[in-house]
Amino acid sequence: MIALDPAEKKRPEFIKVRVKRQDGPGKDPYWQLFQIKYEPELNIISVLQRIAALATTSDGKKVAPVAWDCGCLEEVCGSCTMQINGRVRQSCSALVDRLLEENDDELVLEPMSKFPVIRDLIVDRKRLFRALQRVKAWVPVDSYYDMGSGERQLRSTQEQNYPLSQCMSCGCCLDACPQYGKIELEQREGESDEAFQARELEAFDEGFVGPHAISQAMLFNNHPTGKALAGERLDALTGPGGIQVCGNAQNCVSVCPKEIPLTTSIARAGRATTVHMIKKWFDR
């Protein structure tokens, strides 16, 4: 692609940005339209920064700045996920010029659809991290003392594992997965924070673990020491909300900003659980 030459390509003077807002959990969402000056090389983060500094809608009403989440601004931290023009993605790598090519009318920003909204574009992704606990996504080393190096690993193993290890827990794959449902609980009257959290975890643990966690399970099952927990991870994957929930829609792999081979992991997990299940039946 060649640079967008302002002289050649007509660019609007202003960009309309429609934002789906929500003041808090359980509140009704509503839409607001903002207008900012067009500049070349904007991304959605800078658009939101402009809106935050402006804090005025297109019809001049003063409003609270739109709340959103971001971190690295270079697509490695996973913070800034949202739906842009109806598609879930990282907003730091979403370039306005490209988006305007798709739809030159306006930019539409919405929070992720499968996670409870905290405010505006910020969602609560605790469940995503909880899934990593469910599949024990870690290497169970004895200690953090100096015990010499780890086992030698072939380059091919590294090359298989490295891509999986790049998962930044952004949740794009989950948001696009038609088998992944939203779990949003409300704290009951008189319920303590602890009780509520416990209830929430229970609900999470019955929901779909999600492709990212399946992939992490495969990553650690392919590690010389990580293997030690292979059986437990497969138990988790065959438990409630395990791999069986996947219906092979394969959106996950299509939207993953890190291009992680999720469906390959899912198929590998399919085979591993098949073998695991048969073994368990006969070894009982």
Binding site: Q244, T264, A267, R268, G270, R271
Partner: peptide, 9 residues
């Protein structure tokens, strides 16, 4: 895929 017969893309 479910049963793990075809794995790679």
């Amino acid at each position: 895929i479910t049963w793990g017969l075809w794995i790679s893309p």
